[in-house]
Design a protein around this nucleic acid. Structure first.
Lengths: 338, 338
DNA sequence: AAATATAATGCAAACGTTTGCATTTAATGA
DNA sequence: TCATTAAATGCAAACGTTTGCATTATATTT
């Protein structure tokens, strides 16, 4: 059996409560006994039993994190693990532990409910993809601290979410292309109806307007998913709008295809056509040419999420404003028009 | 306050212990009271307090997982998250939860010790990179269940580890090339001294021997890291050993470089040179040409790791043999000699 | 020196379960 | 009908902490 507070109390000849008090520094204890107790703790290699402690003060010093590895694309995971790392770091620094639960079709809601109702965690971080109105209601009813990763399209979560600034990212992509000497950018989208794509599109359009760019046709090319579809789009673009000199892709796979298709069509990148993508996936720098990307600091995002949660846990108050993480350009060869 | 066992005992007019017994099915209870109790639990929305339960029976129904997101390369993370997903699935199915801790330079050892000694977890999964002799000794001394992901090069962990079959993978790569009509494979290695590279090399050499292939020179090209180094290696290879018709790369980045360099040198893949890589990183299929890879089922690996741990937790016995996860070939165009 | 304030520690209940043992109730056997 | 057994439930301690209140020892004030 492991050493308990009683063991060391007995050894020193003192009451368990005294030991507890020196551990927590929660009352004045004479230097003398304090030292004796510390010595005994060392000698008997004492480690507090968190369970017992949690039971009495109702806090487990553990937070939950739901991850969505199943249905999101494999690429996002690379990012996500950086966020996890950051979340874990903050968590550990504050003396907490991190419990993870995978988001699965049916079970997430129950799993989360159990974690909450069985008192296993003090707070929870959820990806947008895993929240439901029921769940949010439950959490709110219990005044349970939670923060959402990604911007919810519903209104039932106010304030407590953190996301990358997709609109700003769209703006930034345009700005970078203009700064690099391109004049006629188009945006390739998949039209999946995802919030982030809509925001990126919005930023793109606003930036065009702000810079007084009025394209001859529609500057947004829709349904760019799959190699064949993209090939057709590009061919049409080259013939119908030969003035086009740069392409912004809303995701990486799209960008890889674009690069290959342009090479096949002997359109040189970055001279004749600049290409920039969202999300700085790991291999972007090894492509030919290396791809410029609009990136976010996923580590920072994780830090923000975690500290938002801990603010709520500590101060017991909701945040009023959401947090947006700024994007930045990772400049590589694919936009070096010069 | 949440409902407790006492609340429902009071409501039904029965002793708390009776309620506990129907929850756990640990004694004969009359149908009548059982029903009443169940009804009351429903009505009052009862959820057991895990902390209290854990405190008495000394089990937390939580296992730990150390992840090594910091110093390993970003690419490995994509794999790792699949393993995590699998581990989490097994964990959840058995009614356990998963606690994660990031591996950091100095702190891992202490973090793990605390988790163990403070009774937060019932068992732990560790990547090879995070184990130290001290830690293993501690775990063994406490008879604490643990399993290692990856093969330790030291001897202090016997049996309780799971890894991919790197040697088998090396063999498999050669076999695949021969089956595809190639005759003179060479192996590109980085020489980082990692166990997995050594094993892959070993498998490669054994396969050559088994197939009675006796290359004119050394069939292993060392120090293939960085684009420039690889360029030189390839040029030398093309002049000194023009019979070479296929290259096996021990990692992905290397393979991307090889592909680009071969294109620059107008060596056609797969016709004049087959290329195969270890680890099926996400973008391999979008490369030009798509890259054949020796892959492992990382999900399966996770499952194996988790179930090995739970075997230990349940049966309290160490395993005697390590587990190797078989590799398989993901056939793509880069080795279609035809 | 007595009275009072302060510092240091002890006592016991509480957190929500589980469980060995004791007790009650019902069923069975002679 | 009484003794015996089995089934159902109650009692209370235990798990290892924390904490409000009570008590003792020490220091300060008058």
């Amino acid at each position: 059996m492991a050493t308990t507070i009683k063991d060391i109390a007995k050894k020193v000849g003192v009451n368990p409560s005294t030991v507890s008090r020196v551990i927590n520094g929660t009352a004045a204890i004479s230097e003398e006994t304090k030292e004796k107790i510390m010595a005994a703790m060392k000698e008997l290699d004492y480690h507090p039993n968190i369970l017992a402690r949690s039971l009495v003060n109702g806090s487990t010093f553990t937070i939950g994190l739901v991850i969505d590895a199943g249905n999101s694309d494999a690429y996002a995971n690379t990012f996500f693990i950086q966020s996890i790392t950051a979340i874990e770091k903050v968590t550990q620094q504050l003396g907490y532990n991190l419990l993870i639960t995978n988001h699965t079709e049916r079970e997430t809601e129950n799993a989360v409910k159990n974690l909450v109702l069985e008192h296993k965690i003090d707070g929870i971080i959820l990806p947008v993809s895993s929240i439901t109105e029921d769940l949010v209601n439950l959490l709110n009813a219990n005044q349970f601290p939670f923060v959402v990763m990604g911007e919810p399209d519903q209104s039932y979560t106010e304030g407590n979410w953190v996301d990358m600034d997709n609109e700003g990212g769209g703006r930034l992509a345009v700005k970078h292309l203009l700064d690099s000497g391109y004049r006629h950018p188009v945006l390739f989208v998949e039209n999946k109806g995802t919030t982030f794509e809509q925001k990126r599109t919005l930023g793109f359009l606003k930036a065009l307007e702000e810079n007084r760019i009025f394209p001859s046709g529609n500057s947004i090319v829709e349904n760019c998913s799959g190699r064949d579809a993209i090939t057709l789009k590009i061919e049409k673009l080259l013939t119908d709008h030969p003035e086009t000199d740069s392409i912004i892709c809303t995701n990486n796979i799209m960008a890889y295809h674009v690069l290959q298709i342009l090479r096949q069509h002997r359109v040189s990148v970055p001279e004749e056509m600049g290409v920039i993508t969202f999300d700085n996936y790991p291999l972007a720098e090894y492509l030919d040419p290396p791809l410029t990307a609009v990136d976010i600091d996923t580590y920072l995002l994780g830090e923000q999420v975690a500290s938002t949660l801990f603010d709520m846990i500590k101060k017991k108050n909701r945040k009023e404003e959401a947090t947006l993480i700024e994007t930045k350009i990772i400049q590589r060869k694919s936009t070096e028009k010069r």
